[in-house]
Amino acid sequence: MKCRIPALLLVLVLAGPGFAAERIHFLIPGGAGGGWDATARGVGEALARAGAIDASSYENLSGGGGARALSHLIETADRQQNTLMISSSPIILRSLRKIYPQSYHDIVPVASVVVDYGALVVRVDSLYLKWQDVVDDFSNNPRGVNVAGGSSRASTDHIVAALAFQKSGLDARQLKYIPYNAGAHAMVGLLSGETQILSTGLSEAIALADQGEVRILATTAPERLERVPDIPTLTEQGVPAVFSNWRGFFAAPGTTDTQRLQFERILAGMYETEEWQSVRESRGWTDFFVAGDDFVAFLNQQEQEMSALLQELGFLN
């Protein structure tokens, strides 16, 4: 999808002039210092410093694992014309599990900006050298493979691991998932030896893999990434498990097409700026610009896949 950006940019730039980008109000469903917060502020700072917008403000509205911000955006839609809410894959999972009373269908998807892929990680001294080793071990003794993750059951890390096991032809219900309350603690769980595999975000794992602390067995990316060409995907190991944890922006319901296109244009222009490139470098993010109808189609597809998986795991009836 990345290759489409230049063409898209060209179109947007040609159609561009004449739009005065006033200000953007970023609605962040989590507290200061979290992942959503960092992305929204990173995007906002880059846009402001590049002069694409005049001003930006950030509203941290945590609560209900993101449900409060979503309801807020819907309830106060008539005064949120300048608002972009940041969200990510969990919005789909949590809506499916009815933790959120609403879903992305109730708001206006604008564009996804960055992506992280799932990573399956082992200690450097692990006997697992490739994904197949895990599959073999699990087939012999499912209770002997402890999989750590930084979120509760049926959340992203669990889902990524379950997807990998399911697509390897195993019974994902038998997966022994050990939940920690943060990715960092799950990493400690792996390194301390109490779990054998860690399911986490690739960007979190790369830093430690670079330092020789852990080995990444496989990612859920569709193909190998430019930044880490040595890390194999599950797909190429014969397991068609692809999962993209996107982070993107949504506008309030009732947002006009003109306004939505303007948001889209502003965001599309961001990738060219030096400011963005330095933010992205330091944070280890991967660009992932999918906007408009493509974004909606992408969301629908992910929702379908997640729904099927949750159903098979028994989290949905």
Binding site: S57, E59, R79
Partner: peptide, 19 residues
Amino acid sequence: FGIYLDSGDLFRFLAGLSN
């Protein structure tokens, strides 16, 4: 500190502003 504090319904009503 750049913390966003909502200006309140009353203020919005008086000023006719959005956000």
